[in-house]
């Protein structure tokens, strides 16, 4: 079991508030010869190795399959940009998803509190029962990763496939939706679908508050940047270059 997976099973206390400091409240201890960790809270983050990403869109597809998002909605997608001119030309790929920012601009603009930050693991989530579909969060997000599908329309129009019949029950039309960091899988001790499916292992997730986690080590050792960090959002997404 990898270190990142081990961190997944670390229990957390719900009452502890989130903090932006990467190491606050973190402690380690060795127990019975095994390295185990305890923490008071978790901050899930993801590192994306841009040197490994081949732009295969597997993560995009895995996300759609896992979360049953409607046509035109991509909680995860890989941006493409062409660089240079022939013969020195190449395509750059950049997977993009909700950054689960420590200071999410989408949360304060929400008039109903439907967009919120989960206290014990800093995930930015949407309570679909509270969302009124005003799109304020969509506009406020500097990463363009929120969507408000107005109607439940399948990939074949109003005729749903059996899969769509099941998966479309997970979301409501007319409410905002975005990447949940596969919170339903995380809560079961599994990793996000995009991470699990990436064939080049370009995506690494883990607890940013654990200095021993794989993601923390990668961030320490590799050159990286956070998207639009200048906006003061403190995203939990790191691009390794």
């Amino acid at each position: 079991m990898g270190l990142a997976s081990r961190v997944l099973f670390v229990p957390y206390r719900k009452s502890q508030p989130c903090s932006r400091g990467p190491t606050r409240h973190w402690s380690e201890m060795a127990t019975n010869g095994r390295h185990t960790t305890t923490t008071t809270y978790v901050r899930w983050g993801m590192a994306i190795d841009l040197k490994r990403c081949t732009g295969c869109q597997s993560c995009t597809m895995a996300c759609k399959v896992e979360n049953g998002t409607p046509a035109g909605v991509f909680w995860m997608r890989v941006l493409e940009r062409e660089e240079g001119t022939f013969p020195l030309a190449q395509t750059l790929y950049m997977p993009l998803r909700c950054n689960h920012c420590a200071e999410p601009p989408c949360v304060p603009v929400c008039p109903t509190g439907a967009s919120y930050k989960r206290t014990h693991d800093s995930l930015v989530l949407i309570d679909q029962d509270k969302c009124i579909g005003c799109s304020a969060c969509v506009i406020a997000c500097p990463y363009q990763v929120r969507f408000v599908p107005r109607h439940k329309t399948g990939y074949h129009g109003d005729q749903f496939t059996p899969y769509e019949d099941v998966s479309y029950k997970r979301w409501q039309a007319g409410t905002a939706q975005k990447c949940t960091f596969c919170v339903h899988r995380l809560d079961q001790g599994l990793g996000p679908a995009c991470v699990e499916t990436c064939p080049t292992k370009a995506l690494v997730y883990g607890n940013l508050n654990d200095p021993q986690s794989e993601i923390s080590k990668l961030i320490r050792t590799r050159t990286h940047f956070q998207p639009r960090a200048e906006a003061g959002t403190d995203p939990s997404l790191f691009y390794l270059t």
Partner: peptide, 16 residues
């Protein structure tokens, strides 16, 4: 998207 829930919009005047 959900006008019947609009009454909820009175609760976040501190930030929204």
């Amino acid at each position: 998207g959900h006008p019947l829930r609009a009454w909820r919009a009175i609760f976040k005047a501190r930030s929204s």
